[in-house]
């Protein structure tokens, strides 16, 4: 009698382990960025993106405005043209806070704020939205502002960023979710940036989302020079 119980327990634990191992780890797709910026310039960027949450390199292969490949890894941003390294610069190491990583980790609903120096200050229901207000650790309140996140039907709806003085800095909205092989992903991200009393807009559209693909190994782990 005891053996079947042990077998069932083992089977379930192994199945649970396999299920965790088979979770989402790669995402790729096409993207289009349209931006009207503060200095009245406008940008159109089109290309493909690739991200593997274990490798943590974000690879953007742009077809417009120029044929370029941008790769972020740790605190570096690399620019390649025709496979040749043109430029390397230091950037914030923020791969884990990109929409790609957060979607794969199923953390978009709190934008990765859990386990950071942000704490939940307030949760309230507003019509069909659940709004959570996150405040930075008190010792960092002079540097960072509050962040408000709204969820609708357990999906992220919008984020509102404030600076440390409480001024509205940016709003970000996540729209038109699709199910790509079981992964929930917003195909439109609209940003409204507030600067000197004016609003500026940026819209990113994602298409042809692919999840956990086996191809393009050399792109997901784009070879970077040892510096």
């Amino acid at each position: 009698m005891i053996r079947p119980v042990i077998f069932i327990t083992l089977f379930l634990s192994v199945a649970a382990g396999r299920s965790a191992a088979q979770s989402f780890y790669r995402i790729s797709g096409d993207y289009v960025i349209k931006a009207r910026l503060a200095d009245t310039t406008s940008q159109l960027v089109m290309g493909k993106f690739y991200y593997d949450r274990n490798i943590k390199k974000i690879v953007y292969i742009n077809s417009f405005p120029e044929k370029e490949t941008w790769v972020t890894c740790d605190s570096s941003l690399y620019l390649f043209v025709d496979g040749e390294l043109i430029q390397r610069q230091r950037v914030p190491p923020a791969a884990e806070f990109t929409i790609f990583h957060l979607a794969l980790e199923n953390q978009l609903d709190h934008f990765g704020l859990k386990n950071t120096f942000y704490r939940i200050e307030k949760v309230e229901k507003q019509d069909d939205l659940v709004v959570t207000t996150w405040a930075p650790h008190k010792k960092l309140a002079d540097l960072f502002g509050k962040v408000m996140i709204s969820n609708k039907n357990r999906r992220i709806h919008g984020i509102v960023f404030f600076d440390h003085e409480g001024e509205l800095v940016k709003k970000q909205f996540f729209e038109n979710f699709v199910q790509a092989d079981g992964l929930d992903f917003p195909t439109d991200v609209v940003e409204i940036i507030y600067s000197e009393g004016e609003e500026h807009y940026r819209k990113t559209t994602y298409r042809n989302i692919r999840v956990n693909e086996w191809e393009h190994e050399n792109i997901y782990d784009y070879p970077l020079p040892v510096l």
Binding site: I33, V45, T72, V91, A94, F97, T204
Partner: peptide
């Protein structure tokens, strides 16, 4: 690309 987040990287 890396600062203000056109690609979703909050600075």
């Amino acid at each position: 690309l890396a600062g203000e987040p056109p690609l979703g990287i909050p600075s």
